[in-house]
Structures are given as C-alpha cells and as structure tokens.
Simulated scan of single mutants.
Amino acid sequence: MSAPNSDYDPKQVAALGEDEVAQARDAALAAIEAADSLDALKAVRIAHTGDRSPLALANREIGALPPQARKDAGKRIGQARGAVNQALAARGAALEALEEERRLVEETVDVTLPTDREPVGARHPITTIQEHVADLFVAMGWEVAEGPEVEAEWLNFDALNLGPNHPARTMQDTFWVSPERAALVLRTHTSPVQARSMLTRTPPIYVVCPGRVYRTDEADATHMPVFHQVEGLAIDRGLSMAHLKGTLDHFAAAVYGPEVTTRFRPSYFPFTEPSAEVDLLCYVCHNDPGAVADCGTCRGEGWIEWGGCGVVNPRVLVACGVDPEEYSGFAFGMGLDRTITSRYDIADLRDLWDGDIRFTEPFGVGL
C-alpha cells in the first residue's frame, strides 16, 4: 500500500484561504471602529468573535486539514483573531472613557446650589430661647440647674413656704400623681430646682433653672396646661433687691434690646419677702408720650407684665439648710412661652404647639 499524498489536500475549504481570512478580519475591524457605544461594541463582539462568527467557524475547519496545511492555516486564523481581540479591547477602553466623560458632564451635581427637595426645618423657638437664656447667665458666672418634672410634694410646696394648709396652695392648679399617698405632683413651677440646689450646694449659689411645668389650665389663646419657665436663684452674703434689679435689667436688655429696662410693683409670693411683679418697658413705644397711647403691644400702658421676683424668704432658706443670719438671696421667674409671644407679637399661645413647620421656619435653625 502506498503512503498518503501530503501535497494534496482534498478537504481544503475556501474559508481558510488567505483572502477569505483577511476579508473576515477586515470586516470585523471595520465594525469595531464603527461601534459608537458599549452596547454596539457588544453586538460587534458577538457577531465577529462568537461561536457562529466567520473566524470562529474557520478555526473549527483547521482540525480537518493535513499536518502541512494545518500549521499555515492555524497561524493565519490566530493572527486574524488576535488582531480582532486587540481592536475590541482598544475600542472598549476608548468607549468607556467617553462614557465616563459623558456622565461627568451630564450627571454632575453642583452641591453648592440651594435645594428645596427636603425641608431644612427649624428649631423650636422655645428651645432656642431656653438656650439663649442659659448662655446669658452662664456668661455672668451662673450655673444651669435641672430637676425632675415629676416632683415630690414637699419640694414643690412645703420647702417653698407653701405648707399643707397654706392658702397660697389654691393658687397652684396642680396635677397630682396617683396614688395620693405617693405625694408626687407634676411640678407647677421650676422653683423645686431652686430648693434642690440649696439642699445640695454650699453658698454662694447662682443658678438659673429653665424647664417645662404643668398646671390644670384649659388651653386657650393665653393659657396652656404645659408651658415653660425660667427661674433664677442667687444666694450669697449681702444680696439685696438692688442686685436683683440690676440682674433683671441685664436679662431684659439681652432678650428685648438694650433700651429695655424693668420696673417693680409690690406683690405677694410665699417664697419671697419682699416680693414684686416685674414689668418690662414696652420695647415698641418705650413709653414715649407721643407713641404710647396708640401702641398695640402694651395697649397704652407703656409697660408689659413679665414675671415675679423678690428676696428669698428666710423660712425657705431655713427649710433648705441655709443660715438666713449669714446669707440672703433673691429669686425670679418668667414664663418663656409668653416671653416668646410678647417678643414676636404672637396672638395665640397655641401657635407654639400646633406643629406647623410654617410657624417655626421664620425662627431659623438657630446654629
């Protein structure tokens, strides 16, 4: 039997010819160059390198060739496929760079521009004024003192010269906590914080006490069952009403303006003696004879009621462990809610608690 004729290839196919391979390669390169997006390039990759692409089909034919023809055909197909893969990689990198550049231009967000997508909101004016008052007194060397809102009856009344049968207890519309034997109340003022301060500190004592208090008032334009007070207490040697007047004048000027001062009117409070009501000089008309009659803020009075004050009653000092022969003191208390309503001409106290963001927004975030 004679040997196989290696010079003759009965299975030679047209797809493996040099011209055919070059044509398939050039068609792939042209399609790659023409792709103008990553999606288009993906389609070109499938068409020219996928299992049914011309070069892939030609590559399958190599195995049918005799050894001498297989080498040349394999080299030819391999070079063509390599050129196509290199072109795909280069074009992919270029298109990715273009896509990133496009996104940077089209999707860039200018973070310096104002936005109204999410409301910024605002701090509540009561919170703001509490912190403002606290900062004012801390700057004067005072301390901020706090206490529980559910308070012992003794601290809320008895320690402040409001004994069980004291007629002034009827002035306090109190929420009592059940059971009655617990002798607990929702504090009717922040004065128990003053009593706690005297019981736990050694004079000299200078504390300011802002906080929430409770009384059984019906909610209306000028009353709420839950409201806020700020009280101050100073215990030291030689303190008098003159020191109290100077402190409140400074307080009023810081809240209402430098031209606003205070005046005292005789009054009665069981925990101070002597006691006085504090009035503010009207911050609108300033009690000017030419303007006071028409002023709607003070209603022609020239003065606005602000709070109460006085020299600490010696009985309160004794109950809280302070020697009245050595120390004296003064105390004052103002409603923060009414301070806000008078300062900003708010007609209805309930506006503070309706939760309407349109009301609090004008007060700002307070930062």
Score class of each variant (00 low, 15 high):
252 A>V: 12
247 T>R: 08
199 L>S: 05
89 A>K: 14
176 W>V: 15
103 R>T: 15
84 V>R: 03
195 A>P: 10
100 E>M: 13
347 A>F: 05
208 V>Y: 00
193 V>G: 04
295 C>R: 10
130 Q>M: 05
83 A>R: 14
132 H>R: 10
181 R>T: 15
353 W>C: 06
105 V>S: 12
315 R>V: 14
326 E>C: 09
98 L>D: 13
79 Q>T: 04
98 L>Q: 14
116 D>V: 13
348 D>S: 06
288 D>T: 12
21 V>K: 00
161 N>I: 13
55 L>M: 13
117 R>D: 14
349 L>N: 07
4 P>L: 08
70 R>A: 05
338 R>S: 01
84 V>C: 10
318 V>S: 09
51 D>C: 06
190 T>K: 06
361 E>R: 08
174 T>R: 13
126 I>C: 07
114 P>H: 06
270 P>C: 13
323 D>P: 04
320 C>G: 11
27 A>N: 03
344 Y>H: 10
15 A>P: 03
286 H>R: 14
271 F>R: 10
119 P>N: 10
146 E>H: 03
71 K>P: 00
230 V>C: 04
182 A>D: 15
109 V>N: 05
131 E>H: 02
65 L>S: 03
206 Y>T: 06
216 T>D: 02
303 W>I: 15
111 V>H: 03
278 V>S: 02
63 G>C: 09
72 D>P: 04
327 Y>N: 06
320 C>P: 10
169 R>D: 14
169 R>Y: 12
222 T>Y: 07
356 D>E: 01
102 R>P: 04
229 Q>F: 02
90 A>N: 10
235 I>Q: 04
2 S>Q: 06
39 D>I: 09
153 E>T: 08
288 D>E: 13
230 V>M: 02
210 P>S: 00
364 G>I: 04
321 G>S: 08
239 L>I: 14
162 L>I: 10
136 L>P: 01
223 H>N: 05
312 V>C: 04
67 P>S: 02
251 F>L: 15
104 L>T: 15
106 E>F: 05
361 E>M: 02
29 L>W: 02
29 L>F: 07
111 V>D: 05
